[in-house]
Amino acid sequence: GTEIELESKNGQREHYTATSEDEARKIIEKAVRRGIKRIELRGASEQLIRDMQEIAKQIGLQYRTDGSL
């Protein structure tokens, strides 16, 4: 699965493990709508990382991946 670590603007951290790319995408989209400061992805697919970079650029988000592409 993909591990997703979120940090909201007030510094609250949340951790999710998505079993599918679809689920990961839903978690990320929800977080973005809620207003999130930072997202870290571990074990994400190349496609998901590309999507994440696109989203991050659009809304000026900090993100990090573990680089295991």
Rank of each mutant, 00 (worst) to 15 (best):
I4T: 01
R13Q: 05
E14S: 07
R33H: 13
A31H: 06
R50V: 07
E40W: 12
D66F: 00
G60T: 02
D22T: 09
K57D: 09
T19Y: 13
G11V: 01
I55R: 03
I28K: 00
T19A: 12
I55G: 00
K26W: 06
A24E: 01
I39L: 11
I49M: 11
Q12D: 14
S45P: 06
Q12P: 04
S20I: 02
R33P: 04
I28N: 00
L69D: 07
S68E: 12
R42P: 02
L61I: 14
G67W: 00
E54R: 08
R34Q: 13
K57V: 07
V32F: 14
R42S: 10
E40G: 07
A18D: 09
R50L: 08
R13K: 13
N10Q: 07
R38P: 01
R38T: 10
R13F: 13
K37M: 10
R33E: 13
S8K: 08
R34M: 13
I4R: 01
I59A: 15
I59W: 15
K30Y: 07
E29G: 07
I55K: 04
H15C: 13
I36T: 04
T19E: 11
D22K: 09
N10E: 13
E23T: 03
Q12H: 10
A56E: 03
S20M: 02
T2K: 00
G60D: 14
S45N: 03
S20Q: 04
L6T: 10
K9H: 12
K57N: 11
E29A: 14
T2L: 09
K9I: 13
G35H: 06
G60R: 04
E29C: 14
T2R: 02
Q53V: 13
E29W: 10
D51I: 12
A44Q: 03
E40L: 14
R42M: 11
S8Y: 14
K9N: 11
D22L: 07
G1V: 13
E5S: 13
A31S: 05
I28P: 00
M52Q: 00
R64F: 15
Q47H: 05
T65F: 04
Y16W: 10
R64K: 14
A31Q: 04
R38G: 06
L48H: 01
E21D: 14
Y16H: 09
T17P: 05
G43S: 05
L69R: 03
L41T: 06
I59T: 12
V32W: 03
R38H: 07
D66C: 15
Q47P: 04
K37T: 10
G1W: 13
R34G: 12
D51C: 11
I28W: 02
E29S: 08
L6N: 01
N10R: 06
L69A: 06
G11K: 02
E40K: 10
I27S: 01
Q53E: 13
G67M: 04
Q58S: 12
L41H: 01
L61E: 07
R42F: 11
R38Q: 06
G11I: 01
S20D: 09
S68W: 12
I27Q: 01
I55E: 01
Q53W: 12
E14R: 06
G67A: 06
A24C: 06
S45G: 04
E3H: 12
A18G: 10
K37D: 05
V32P: 00
K37H: 12
S45L: 03
L69Y: 11
R33S: 10
R33L: 12
G60P: 02
A56V: 06
R33A: 13
A44E: 01
D51K: 08
R13H: 13
K26M: 09
G11S: 03
D22I: 12
T2D: 01
A18L: 06
L41M: 09
E21C: 07
E40N: 10
R13L: 14
Y63G: 15
T65M: 04
M52E: 00
E23P: 01
E21T: 08
E23G: 03
Y16Q: 03
L41N: 00
A44T: 02
L69E: 07
E14W: 06
E46Y: 02
R50M: 10
L48P: 00
A18I: 10
R33T: 12
R13P: 03
K9C: 15
L69S: 06
E40V: 14
I59V: 14
A44G: 09
Y63K: 15
G35V: 01
E23R: 03
D66A: 03
I55F: 11
R42H: 09
E46D: 10
T2E: 02
K37S: 11
A44P: 04
Q53M: 14
K57I: 07
E21Q: 05
K26Y: 07
Q12A: 09
K30M: 13
I39K: 00
E7C: 11
E3N: 09
T2I: 11
K37F: 07
D66S: 04
R25N: 01
E46H: 08
Q12C: 14
D22Y: 07
R38D: 02
A18R: 03
G11H: 03
R34C: 13
Q62R: 08
T17H: 14
S45F: 05
A56I: 09
Y63D: 15
I39S: 00
T19P: 06
N10D: 14
G43K: 05
G60Y: 06
T65V: 15
R64T: 15
E5W: 14
A24Q: 01
I49A: 08
A24P: 00
L69K: 05
V32K: 02
L41C: 04
R64L: 15
E5P: 00
I59F: 15
I36K: 01
Y16N: 01
E23S: 04
H15M: 11
E54A: 09
L69W: 15
G67L: 05
T65N: 08
I27M: 04
Q12E: 14
V32G: 02
L61S: 03
T2P: 10
Q58M: 07
R33K: 13
D66W: 00
Q62I: 15
I55V: 07
I55H: 03
R13C: 13
Y16V: 08
E23M: 10
G35W: 02
S20G: 06
